[in-house]
Nucleic acid binder design. Sequence first.
DNA 1: AGGCTATTTATACACTTGCGCAACAAGGCT
DNA 2: AGCCTTGTTGCGCAAGTGTATAAATAGCCT
Lengths: 237, 237
Amino acid sequence: MPDTADPAPMTVRRKFRREGEERRRQDLIEATLDCVAEYGLQGATLRTIALRAGVTAGLIRHYFPGKEELLQEAYTALVGRMTEQAKAALVMEEASPRQRLAAFVTANLNAPIIDQRVFSLWATFIGRASADPTLARAHREGYLGFRNEVEAVVAEVLAAEQRKPDASQLRRHAIAINAIIDGLWIEGCLAGEMFSPGELAAIGIKAVEAELGLAPLEPEISGRIGLKSESGSKSKR
Amino acid sequence: MPDTADPAPMTVRRKFRREGEERRRQDLIEATLDCVAEYGLQGATLRTIALRAGVTAGLIRHYFPGKEELLQEAYTALVGRMTEQAKAALVMEEASPRQRLAAFVTANLNAPIIDQRVFSLWATFIGRASADPTLARAHREGYLGFRNEVEAVVAEVLAAEQRKPDASQLRRHAIAINAIIDGLWIEGCLAGEMFSPGELAAIGIKAVEAELGLAPLEPEISGRIGLKSESGSKSKR
DNA sequence: AGGCTATTTATACACTTGCGCAACAAGGCT
DNA sequence: AGCCTTGTTGCGCAAGTGTATAAATAGCCT
């Protein structure tokens, strides 16, 4: 074995490709979320994140000042994605307010919003929010945006029913409905297999309608209110 | 200063007291919860925990096989304490079912159950539950116990109203009410200053009564809880 | 009072962590 | 084609991690 006169270096340097800045940042953020969801904040080390993103750890410092900033940007991205998906169900133009409210509840209580991975991420980050002002701010912005959307739809629904609630009543309804959705979301994420498909959404719609004092629709009609109800299995592991 | 011929050791050994085993374990668990709430799982190191408990790090290994077991026992203790407090509001013997339900909701939406520290702990641990079967089991046991309590009270309330719900209706009510309490609990823990004292409890009680289709009590009467209000008219507003 | 033992301290160790830095090479530019 | 910028790697470092273990001592028992 002639290992002498070896022109090749002892250890070959890793091949790599230069990616666009935005692409790399996005990949790193996604890898960060993956690692946090799987291993928690303590397991999401720079080396693990880099491995997942297909780069080496040193590169992270080229895009983020430090680990903390990476985590903060990852959480901000997560919150943005969550609220965006949640509100997407509200842009049904021709539907009645009540149908839009029902579609909103349904969308929030099915995949991809009901998702173990997303819940793990949410819980992990929110647990640090009280100690990290940056996380707290990212959360509060997302939360208030969400609740304002709820309040707006509720106002439309009640207006369509000829009712004129004052601001404080509206606020209370929004708080309660927000709680119903959040609570059912948690139950679904944590123990999804305990509920049949669509069951959480049905419970949520009924609870919301009871909160607003709406007479229930006919069962056949309430079943097909403009929603896709396809259970996309995007769960990992 | 004659430092020669010094009978005292160069570094004085730390004074300590021997505590009873149960007491030490309890102190260590409490210190662990403190550290997790303040610094998160990553910041809750053995040295930090030991410092908070007033001992040195090595002692922890004398009471727990490893860090993981300490964390698991800490979470189990937390869950036990939470459900214990929550259910404590249900042991009003002479009260009517409806009063007990209202007291249950109220208790769960005020201090000490509405508490930032407890919420941080809950979120931090629950975020790891999907990856750690031991945590998942501790959570599920506490959760199911809680929901069974809810279901039992709901059954009593409806029975007192001469209603005979079947098992599936009962289950749906329990799920919805559990969600209402959980959701409002989160809102209160995360943004307690946004709500006036007692506001969350009032919203919760109203939402729960709406979910169960209970006619609201008269404001003046509802203050002095002790009447059955046998009014057959379930008219609202 | 003095010894015994288990609790507690203190130190060592192998390993991981986030970060800094110099060398390298991918790919656009001329 | 060759150069030059800079995205990217590889490696080192100091601080901190959980664990192992020996040494000390507090406090009960006789």
